[in-house]
């Protein structure tokens, strides 16, 4: 536990000592901010138009739901941006140690591969959390100027965190396979993308296969969270997925010892 924490701390230092971290966070927040602005302005415009219409024709105003029409699509967007940005976070988790030869330090210290992999995994998740925090300010604005429901926002962030953990576990595994960070980033993105679009393939396959593909699709499980429903079935899917990625990373780094 202490050693896992030591690895975790070291990884966080790496993140925050490097300018790339700030570029990644800034890119994430700016892109998220643009989408938020677009959603917000179209939402406000629609609500405003409806208000004028209802006054003109003396009809009751339509019910506009900020959760349904703004927060939900915004969470989908955050998930999509995460798909693109998280490979940049996971690419160096292991590749850099291989490239610089510091694996030789890690493997010759009284440290088990579990310490190494868990420390790195949780550091990645923490970094993702730090990336998400500025987007919460956008949400805060909605609460200040409107009255959205609170729990769907919580479930949305929980969903993002779980989805992000799954991406990070997958990206970590890819990063154990190569010492080239670019390849690790592309591989991590490719893996995440395949898992994302696998659900589409379900539309073109037989009923039995479709069920499997739909289950595997990493984004299908996100839907309920974005809508404000926390279903243990989906929580379990993401936790299982993350655990599997972590397990593969463990196996991968243990096999390096035999090869290199």
């Amino acid at each position: 536990m202490k050693k896992t924490f030591a690895v975790y701390q070291k990884e966080l230092k790496h993140f925050f000592y490097s300018p790339i971290a700030y570029i990644v966070i800034a890119a994430f927040v700016i892109i998220a901010g643009i989408f938020f602005y677009l959603y917000l302005s179209s939402f406000v415009e629609a609500a405003f138009m409806d208000m004028i219409r209802s006054q003109q024709y003396r009809t009751p105003p339509q019910k506009f739901n900020v959760n349904l029409q703004l927060i939900r699509p915004f969470f989908w967007n955050l998930a999509l941006i995460s798909l693109f940005v998280l490979p940049l976070v996971t690419m160096r988790l292991f590749s850099e140690e291989k490239k610089s030869g510091t694996v030789e330090l890690l493997y010759t210290r009284p440290l088990s591969s579990v310490h190494i992999v868990l420390g790195k995994f949780f550091a990645g998740v923490t970094f993702y959390l730090v990336m998400l925090i500025p987007t919460m300010i956008f949400m805060l604005l909605l609460f200040i100027y409107g009255n959205p429901e609170f729990w769907p926002v919580v479930s949305g962030y929980l969903g993002l965190l779980l989805l992000g953990s799954a991406f990070i576990a997958g990206g970590l595994f890819i990063s154990t396979l190569t010492e080239n960070q670019i390849i690790a980033a592309i591989g991590g993105f490719g893996l995440s993308l395949v898992l994302w679009i696998i659900g589409w393939a379900a539309n073109f396959s037989g009923p039995g296969m479709a069920g499997i593909l739909n289950y595997l699709s990493i984004i299908n499980h996100f839907e309920d969270f974005a809508q404000g429903v926390i279903d243990t079935k989906h929580v379990f899917y993401y936790l299982l997925f993350s655990a599997f990625g972590v397990y593969l990373s463990l196996k991968s780094i243990e096999s390096i010892k035999w090869k290199s």
Partner: peptide, 11 residues
């Protein structure tokens, strides 16, 4: 001490 000192250059 390995042949290439295993250092983290940003620390």
């Amino acid at each position: 001490l390995p042949e290439n000192p295993p250092l983290y250059s940003d620390l």
